[in-house]
């Protein structure tokens, strides 16, 4: 399940203000729009939520300010964890994907495929195949 709006905003504010107390505030209207877009992209499919949230937020990086670089990997990793999965992508790989999304160089379907092969059940070791996508 994707984060609830008020928890999403509070969690982001909390994380950034603890590390960057003087960071400018976020464009919260756009952050909410990103969350709504993520819901549309995932279309109720829990396995697609990490990619959907990462994609929708990367498209709107500016709304997170400079903190987008630190926040986006966390959003994707937390979303995978909430589905009982681990996202086996290094931060460098996520940074490349983030930049490519922001530049319009990758579609959601491509990102979803890249995430799909990198999601592992948290209870099992790395290298196992991800859970089967229904349908």
């Amino acid at each position: 399940m994707l984060p609830q709006v008020d928890g999403f905003l509070a969690g982001i504010r909390l994380f950034v203000r603890r590390r960057r107390p003087h960071a400018p505030s976020f464009d919260e209207v756009t952050l909410v729009a990103a969350l709504e877009h993520a819901e549309q992209l995932a279309a109720g499919e829990e396995l697609d939520e990490p990619a959907a949230l990462f994609f929708a937020c990367a498209l709107r990086s500016r709304a997170f300010g400079a903190a987008s670089h630190a926040l986006l990997p966390l959003l994707a990793r937390n979303q995978a964890q909430s589905a009982g999965l681990r996202l086996d992508l290094a931060d460098v790989e996520l940074a490349i994907l983030h930049a490519r999304i922001a530049l319009g160089a990758i579609r959601f379907e491509e990102l979803r495929d890249a995430f799909s092969v990198a999601l592992r059940p948290t209870t099992q070791g790395s290298g196992r195949p991800p859970p089967r996508r229904p349908g």
Binding site: P3, Q4, D6, G7, F8, A10, G11, I12, L14, F15, R19, R20, A66, A67, H69, A70, P73, L74, R77, N78, Q81, S82, D91, A95
Partner: peptide, 23 residues
């Protein structure tokens, strides 16, 4: 009690290993 807030309040160390470089 919100799971996202709890995660962001105290992320696992491995998830924030690169946070300084990312900032």
């Amino acid at each position: 009690r919100d799971l996202f807030v709890r995660y962001m309040m105290d992320p696992p160390p491995e998830d924030v290993a690169n946070v300084d470089a990312l900032f």
